[in-house]
Every structure is written in structure tokens, then in C-alpha cells.
Nucleic acid binder design. Structure first.
Lengths: 228, 228
DNA sequence: ATACTCGGGATTGTACATAATATTTGGTGT
DNA sequence: ACACCAAATATTATGTACAATCCCGAGTAT
């Protein structure tokens, strides 16, 4: 009956950027399964629970529709779209398509020096194994890596779309957490991709990227939907 | 100085779906070059010119940001992003990526009968050359074709993204108009893709689709940015 | 010349009105 | 008594009007 969990989400939402915060909260709620498919996203209800006004909520909803987790019907508001293993796979499928093409296009367009530097930092991380805040570092490295390729692909729009999907992936990551093993594997795969880029082998880079995304996709799926 | 052209756009905008109409108008304006890069999209100004209130305009703006033609800066509102030949190419590049993968995935997932039927209708169109409303028919055929593949690719999200890009392409189409020659070529390419699908040759279908999108992309670019 | 303040303009958020849809209630016919 | 239809009511989406905050630039004083 209740549109959102009973948790009384009172606000420490910083003035300005309300919309963004609402988007992230709802994303998380949907991915966690608190908001299930078909649930009506009642504007006033959400506004009350978040302790804010309706306008930012409405704007958040159109953003949610844009990222494909909610759906508007005219004069009937928004409902949440299904989210489960299949939808997670779909997300990573899209991400794979986008980032693969980005890697292909970025090949030969990035400065060697930049690549070498990044590779060095990553290699260092791979060795410096024991540090307690390794996860954080790896997190940053991961982001930089993917952003570098996206930014260097020569298609600003493609970079934007990748960034859009990064929003979703970040939300997933918040739920899944940072598994050490997954991050280590990711690091290896990143290195392989950089090597392909350094070798000016676009197709190899694309292939490796495809494998990389697919692998993290299945890893995430394992964690999120451990058979119950 | 003026945020939008001086044209006094008075409204016959039907109640409900205001947002959508605003989106389309602004899209058209941006693609036509009336709104150039960096122009501030002042909410109140647009609301006045459209004769409506600010809320739907604001929602339209976040939608425009989502489709990548506007950009928000916090507490400084939205500005229009650059649009020119390069950006048009970027759009068709994305569309190519998406639809190519859709074709690849749809191969073997569509009912033969559906394909055969569609092929028959298209072949009929190819023959029935003289009709005066040929353009309209072709238009519908085009849409059906691409929607069929998108819907049948097995990834609802991919279908959604394709639909999102269709919004952009439709806006472009409104400006470019329906060139007979382009449509005829498109029809041929559609037939080739269907044949590949019927032959269960996913890679061929993907290839043909890539060529098809690329070809219409360059055709559109020719028309829109005829060297001046 | 530089730093500071103050004012105009615009974004962001709130409160309210209107219209459309869903629901419930009451009546009617079988 | 029960099913079904219709009108009234409640809920919610959509749009309008308004207030507060924020950014930027002009003017001024040091």
C-alpha cells in the first residue's frame, strides 16, 4: 500500500541539487528491491517522505524515466519498471556496447604518455597489495580509467552516454559494495586493455573491454542475486 | 540577447503533454540553429514565449539534458550544447552502435512469418512507385522496420535507447524533410537487412544495418549542412 | 588597481489551484 | 439478494503563482 518503505526518510538534503539526491535515493531503492515493478511513484508521497516539495521530485522522476528505471503514462504519473537479473544483464549489455566502441575509437587517439602514466599508477596499485584503503584507491583508478577512454574516444555524445550508465553502475556498486576479488580482477583487465591500446590494436582493445565489462557484470549479478 | 528567436510562439499546446511539446520545439530550434551553443535556456523566458508556466519548461529542460542537447550547471541553469556536423555524426554514430547490436541480437529471435510479411509489404512499396503519398507510407514502413528489430532484440533497455535516439532522429527528419531518393535507398537497405535476418546470418545483418545507418547519416548531413 | 558591497536577474524550491483518473457508494433491474 | 451501472467522491497528476536563495556584475571606497 505504501509507495515507499515505511522508513521515515528525513532530510539532510543539501539545498540545491535536491533533484539529484532524490534520483540517487530512488535508484538505490529500486535496485535494492524496496520499490518493486509497477509501484506507483506518487509525487506528493515521495515529497512528504523526503520532507521536500513536489517540484524537485517531479524533475527527479523525469530523470529516472530517462535512465530507464521508471515509466510515465500520460496523466497517470510514473511507475517503476521491472528490475531483476535480466534487467541487470541488460544494463551491462548496454554498457558493454558503449564502452567497447569507446575503446575501439580511443585507440590511436590517446597520448602515449597519458596511457603510460596511468598504467604505471595501476601497476603500482597491483603491487601495493596490503594497504587498508586499497579499495578507495582502486575505485578512483577504475573511474579514471573508464573516463579516460570515454573522453578520448572522439565522440562527446558517446562519452555522455557512458557517463549516464555510470550513474546506474555507481548505484549498483553502492549496494554490492567493493569486493576485493572483483577489483583485483578488474585491475588486471584494465592493464590488459591499456596494453592493447599501447600496441595500437583497436580490435584487441575492444575485445578486452567487452570481456572486462561482461566479467564485472556477471560478478555483480552473482552478488546481487545470490540464489535464495 | 534574447534567449530564443523573437518569434512569438503562442500556444495551442494541449493540456497534458506540455513537457513533451516543449521538448520537441526546443529540439527543433536547436537543430535548426536558432538556438546556438552556449545560449542560456532561461526558464521564465521560455515559459512566457510559449505562453505556459515554468514547471513544464523546467521538466522539458531536464529531458533535454538527458538526450544530450542541453547541459545543466548547478544554480546556473541550462545552456544549449554545441550542435553542428560533428554532433550530427555523433548522433548517428550512437544510433549505428545501438541498432547494429539490436540487429545482431534480433537475428534468430524473430518469427519468420513476421519478417516475411514485412518484407512483402516493403517489396510492394518498392514496386508501387508512383503513388503520391508514397513518402508517408515509406515513413511508416521505416518506423515499423526499426521498431520490429528493436523490440525483438531481447533487451528491452536497448530498445528504449533506440527509441530515445528515434526522438532525435525524428526531430532531424522534420527539418530535413522526406527526400525521395534517400527513402528509396533506405528501402533497399531494409530489404537487404531482412534477407540477412531470414538467412539467420547475424553478422551480415549487423553489417548491413551499420552500413544503412551510416548511409542515411551522411545523406542527412549533406542536406542539413550543405556548404554555405 | 583591488577588494567589497549592493542590486538585478535567474534558478531553485514551496504552496496552491485545476483537471483527470481511480474508487466507492448508492441505486436499479433482474 | 445479487450483479451491474452510474453518479459522487477521493486521490493524484499537471500546471500556475509566488518566495527565497544564489550568482554575477556594476559601482564605490580604500
Amino acid at each position: 500500500m505504501n509507495a515507499i518503505g515505511t522508513e521515515q526518510q528525513l532530510v539532510s538534503l543539501s539545498r540545491g541539487a535536491l533533484r539529484h539526491d532524490v534520483v540517487n535515493r530512488l535508484l538505490k531503492a529500486i535496485f535494492q528491491g524496496e520499490l518493486t515493478a509497477g509501484t506507483r511513484l506518487v509525487v506528493q508521497g515521495l515529497a512528504d517522505r523526503f520532507g521536500i516539495s513536489s517540484t524537485p521530485v517531479r524533475e527527479a522522476l523525469v530523470e529516472l524515466e530517462a535512465v530507464g528505471v521508471a515509466q510515465f503514462t500520460h496523466n497517470r504519473g510514473a511507475i517503476v519498471k521491472p528490475f531483476g537479473p535480466q534487467q541487470l544483464r541488460d544494463i551491462f549489455h548496454l554498457r558493454r556496447i558503449l564502452e567497447t566502441e569507446a575503446a575501439r575509437c580511443a585507440c590511436g587517439r590517446l597520448q602515449r604518455e597519458t596511457l603510460v602514466t596511468l598504467r604505471f599508477q595501476m601497476q603500482e596499485l597491483a603491487d601495493d597489495d596490503g594497504s587498508r584503503q586499497w579499495s578507495e584507491e582502486e575505485m578512483g583508478s577504475d573511474r579514471r580509467f573508464h573516463e579516460l577512454i570515454a573522453a578520448g574516444c572522439g565522440n562527446a555524445r558517446l562519452a555522455d552516454e557512458i557517463s549516464r550508465y555510470d550513474t546506474l553502475v555507481q548505484a549498483v556498486r553502492e549496494i554490492v559494495g567493493n569486493r576485493r576479488q572483483v577489483q583485483e580482477q578488474a585491475l588486471d583487465e584494465h592493464l590488459a586493455i591499456i596494453d592493447a591500446l599501447l600496441a595500437d590494436d583497436a580490435e584487441s582493445a575492444a575485445m578486452q573491454m567487452a570481456r572486462h565489462i561482461a566479467s564485472t557484470g556477471t560478478a555483480v549479478e552473482m552478488v546481487m542475486f545470490a540464489a535464495g
